[in-house]
Design a protein around this nucleic acid. Structure first.
Lengths: 349, 349
DNA sequence: CTATTTATTTGGAACGTTCCAATTCTGTCA
DNA sequence: TGACAGAATTGGAACGTTCCAAATAAATAG
């Protein structure tokens, strides 16, 4: 019943060489004679040898486990699932494997899984941190020489690499587009002011407003929870304003959906009577009625890029903390009042 | 720059005990004195010790790596993302970690990742096989004593455990419901014909049609990629038919969403003008507009169940191949035209 | 034919843990 | 006091690989 594991020594014996030679073959060394190599390979196939990476890794002093840890805060959100797929693509083709865990926004869980990953000797970590993650949480990792790349949400203060989408440019483009449609009173709705992402998006909004020669009016910035309910609340306040806005850019798509709900409750048709633009391009954005004009952020691209960054650092041996922002793209649909029914865009591949 | 790893020997030295004792503490053995235990633990914390599971695993003769491999065919489909989350839940709380990989339906990729996982010494594998996976592909795994659980798609001929949902009953219920609403031309849209799941669902469709006394019409079965894009394509063909259907059951929810897109592009309102029913009940199904009527299969539950099954086999040491099919349930929402009267095309032209 | 290089191959000694058998340290009992 | 049982601890010897220095074989030069 008990299967005796086939080891490099068994191979050596059967092929009539030494274990060192077999090891050399395993690593594809050029030092070994072509004849021997093929002989050894043949024997391996014949005996059904499987490489024991654990043992190898042990000897190689923790340098190269070829495991990448990936931690996301909500895998059921397709945004993050896409991100994981992006990571997997590049990681896999570089001969690494992916250790993926979901934290469900639980910071304790996050700590656990990161610890576990460390015990398994990951050679790098990609993480979309749970809310309220302490910037110091990844200190020990980098101190141990394990590169960390933070994606989507950045951790101000942590000296790790990060890759976030270009929130400023995206919001600016949204404002520009609304200005181009003739709007001059444009509100910024939703989001909690104490996050880095909020700051970035607000800055983009302001730049857009000022670039258009319109005055920045604090009254038009109305924060709320970054949720559908928050959107309803925010548009309520906006409508109550003395000098009412005619359009709004929203913190994210959830808020934008809430804004649409709120408009309808007041017998205003989003798109026709009031322009609304979202942010993220979640999967529902294109199917909604009216289809949501929003800023698309390509999570798969972020995943790929993050993985490349991480691999680079792993190979370099030295973790140069760098920060990159990825390009975003305004997707014009119906909710901004421009364009008519967009031609049903094919789903992602 | 190079951090010297803290090992069990360092701990032993610093705590004034032997490495064996430290090892005992690590394993929570009851043999060690309470005083010594806390002392050792204190030193560990102080020196920032991290357990090296690779080394331990090496000694313990491949028995317990505490790694579970999870292989899915399409992580961008939220059905599988949910499944992975379900697996992660039970796996994590059992003190295991999850190695997750995506094959994108590529059988080569699947072979690669499984091989890689094996090298890493997984103690079990949960797999939703790529299309056209050979039943013999997992032979070596089970021969090596590594339990395998196949989920979602079954592999006829492979003597491994599997857990699939009751596709036949689900599709039959969907058809019955549409018949009850008065439809008599009901199409079956999407999916690739060469899979076991497709066969099952189609069989269910056919049974439903025939049970209702309607004639089975091959023309109404239109296959396509099981994706949103595939749905758009399929509904296009369906609409072009001479004797046009008035309703459709779809291979899965992704297809159903695509069908809705396609209908809208032709100025038909899903629900009101054409009934559509999905399969899977992915998370977006209830939030969509119109909310999708679909067959609920609880992927997270399948994931959890599969994981439990796998863990049981791992602990038992012996892999008793068992097969379970999980019940499904039709969830009536709006897209089938039943439920609350669809908010008819009043508002927008 | 010896010296020198070049191309291959090879025995240990690690790596960080767990296991086994053996040891020391307590008390307790006769 | 000596013998004896636990209780607690401990030194090796593994596990399957890679690395190093050194050995061998083959080829070339002097």
């Amino acid at each position: 019943m008990t299967k005796p594991r086939v080891t490099v020594i068994d191979i050596a014996k059967a092929a009539g060489v030494s274990k060192s030679t077999v090891s050399l073959v395993l690593q594809g060394s050029s030092l070994v004679n072509e004849g021997t190599r093929s002989k050894v390979n043949a024997v391996m196939r014949e005996l059904g040898y499987v490489y024991n990476r654990g043992a190898a890794n042990l000897r190689q002093a923790g340098a190269k486990s070829r495991i990448i840890g990936v931690v996301v805060n909500d895998l059921t959100n397709s945004f993050f699932a896409e991100l994981a797929v992006g990571v997997d693509m590049v990681v896999q083709s570089a001969g690494f494997v992916q250790f993926l865990s979901n934290t469900s926004e639980s910071i304790d869980r996050q700590r656990e899984v990161v610890a576990s990953m460390r015990e398994h000797g990951i050679s790098g970590l990609i993480v979309s941190p749970a809310r309220a993650t302490d910037a110091a949480d990844f200190k020990p990792l980098v101190a141990a020489g394990i590169p960390v790349v933070v994606v989507v949400r950045n951790l101000p203060g942590a000296k790790v690499s990060s890759i976030v989408s270009d929130n400023r440019a995206g919001m600016m483009a949204a404002v520009e587009h609304l200005v181009g449609l003739g709007h001059s009173r444009i509100a910024f709705l939703g989001g909690f002011p104490d996050t880095a992402v909020f700051d970035d998006r607000l800055t983009g909004y302001r730049s857009g407003i000022e670039a258009a020669g319109l005055g920045y009016d604090e009254e038009l910035v109305i924060s709320s929870a970054p949720s559908r309910a928050g959107g309803v609340e925010a548009i309520g306040k906006a409508i109550a304003l003395g000098d009412r806005p005619t359009a709004a850019v929203c913190f994210n798509d959830a808020v934008a959906f809430g804004v649409c709900d709120g408009l309808r409750a007041r017998r205003l048709e989003p798109g026709a009577d009031f322009a609304v633009v979202g942010f993220d391009d979640v999967i529902e954005a294109q199917a909604a009625v009216p289809a949501l004009t929003t800023v698309s952020v390509d999570p798969q691209g972020i995943g790929r890029r993050g993985a490349q960054m991480l691999l680079k650092q792993i190979n370099a041996g030295k973790a140069e903390a760098e920060t990159v922002t990825t390009a975003v793209r305004l997707v014009v649909r119906e909710s901004c009042g421009a364009g008519k029914a967009a031609p049903a865009r094919a789903g992602r591949a």
